[in-house]
Design a protein around this nucleic acid. Sequence first.
DNA 1: TGCTGGCACTCTCTTGTTTAGAGTGCTAAC
DNA 2: GTTAGCACTCTAAACAAGAGAGTGCCAGCA
Lengths: 346, 346
Amino acid sequence: MASNQDLNERSLYLLKSLVERYIHDGQPVGSRALSKDPNLKLSPATIRNVMADLEDMGLIHSPHTSAGRVPTVSGYRLFVNSLLTVKPLESRELDQLQSSLLTESDGPGEVLSKASRLLSDVTQMAGVVTLPRRETIALRHIEFLPMSNTRILVIFVTDDQDVHNKIIHTDRLYSPAELQQAANYLNSMYAGRSLSRIRESILLDMEQNRAQVNQGMIDAVTMAQQTFAQQPKDDYVLTGETNLMGFSELSDMERLKQLFEAFSQKRGVIHLLDQCLQAEGVQIFIGEESGYRAFDHCSLVTSSYSINDEVVGVLGVIGPTRMAYEKVIPFVDVTAKLLGAALNSK
Amino acid sequence: MASNQDLNERSLYLLKSLVERYIHDGQPVGSRALSKDPNLKLSPATIRNVMADLEDMGLIHSPHTSAGRVPTVSGYRLFVNSLLTVKPLESRELDQLQSSLLTESDGPGEVLSKASRLLSDVTQMAGVVTLPRRETIALRHIEFLPMSNTRILVIFVTDDQDVHNKIIHTDRLYSPAELQQAANYLNSMYAGRSLSRIRESILLDMEQNRAQVNQGMIDAVTMAQQTFAQQPKDDYVLTGETNLMGFSELSDMERLKQLFEAFSQKRGVIHLLDQCLQAEGVQIFIGEESGYRAFDHCSLVTSSYSINDEVVGVLGVIGPTRMAYEKVIPFVDVTAKLLGAALNSK
DNA sequence: TGCTGGCACTCTCTTGTTTAGAGTGCTAAC
DNA sequence: GTTAGCACTCTAAACAAGAGAGTGCCAGCA
């Protein structure tokens, strides 16, 4: 058994070179090819010895006897963690990013779509952006419109100019006038505050028996919170899925189907992305690391993005394990920062 | 050259039988297999003669010398138009449909999604439903909220309880009070009428120099119309795309990619579906008939659906040319009617 | 005239075999 | 510790052969 001490500088350089070559041309890399590396004046035989060690350590693996070696998940992991030389963004790409995201115009929804499209267009893989999910969203404006029976259409505008609407069911019948009054009250008294604080506030007022507060107000806030709670916030914008169909490692139809099914179920993907909400900076899942079968042959490069220093969402790129990490990582990083900036300025 | 007179009852029955067999097991059908048909007491040799005629007429086609025959697009077309024996819906399916669609609860958006999901779940192909697009939509409620500079958030509730919102840019700055006033005026005076009629009305009032009408009102309606005009109505709900990955005739990765790209572009698909808006009843595109390369190996079974006798949208099923038309056609038909009914009752 | 049995033919698909090429592991020598 | 050499293994491509399916056509029969 080879110990970690065998991981001297030379073996690491060899691993790095191997991973880079494999990422570049997708073929298993043999000792002969590596021996051509000008920085590495070694014969194929020596390289074979080193590769045997790397294989013992589970960093590379041979598809069959007479093929070269291919990085394993651990190999990629080591590569990404310590060997990678990150390529800074090309200025052309940076320009494209900035001009696309920072033009003040459309609503938040459009900005997210643009970001996702950028991620997929530039990397030629799939781009994903989760909808921003703020802990405390303040009320900007609320409206209750009666529908048939006990159904009420609640329109809820948050202070980030996002419009939510939801049909809710109430226990009793409310008259249009009642609804109007409740909305007016909430709009005039509590705009700018978060829902939970509004609720607290009203309860307090009620205790103190203020005249203008009544059960209706409570109901109204409950409705509003309902609207918000049920809002399908577990959602994301995914673009460029079709790019993934070009990769040979995903050309297996059964695998591809599972992957696309995961995309439309959304649950699993969201759950995976949520794990990146906590983490600072760029987070990477390689192959089976994600824990989701559908992503076994994919890697996920993600970064959280923030509005006003509050982490609200995650964006990233989904592609085959064999991807150009050195370009994707900085790109995801910058995009996340720019998206945050774009949403800040709203 | 064989003339149409050769299309006697026997040849037609043979074609029908051939198409049915091919649809059922996906293999080219040979003369020997067809000779086993109990209603058709003919030797393989005779059947071969008839099949040769059918091939001359371009109704069937042989992939290679020693394979059986496969229907061409014309063959499918003749089959669908005149030979098909439609299978009525199974009561289980009808129950499922009714209970899913006719439960009064959620907004129109959810109903459309449910319809689409039903289409894909039952047929195990892809289901599509275009968003309803009414010629004249009446105003239920409107709200203008100021954002930064000359940007205004318009919230527009139509009488079918659908909420639209859009950020528009105006020429000059409007004060919150102005916006409030405009919205109040529109809501109180014109709720229930269509936008174009509101506009006419206001212009008329202005000519007659009524006191309460001013340029602001005109601007308000213009804004409202803008909101509505720019609304991306060229949209649909598509579900079960992944089902399509199971079909061998779509297993070519390049084709599949084109198909999925068409799905996400949306333009072409919408254009195709629009052609069904005019038509009464179920409309079918078989293979290349659609005119879109991406759909060359697909068939599309569609039907328009109506709200209050006004045709507003199209729904349908997308699958391989080799699909069970006799089941899909009645299913699409019924679903369209039920969806109309479900939306009517709102 | 229309149907049928027979037969030669064609094409695909599968299987087995061979060969070239690539890459390895091991060993002995430097 | 490094290297050259060599036997070995495995894949991929090319080729051959045979089985199977289905056809077209022809001659004979009702």
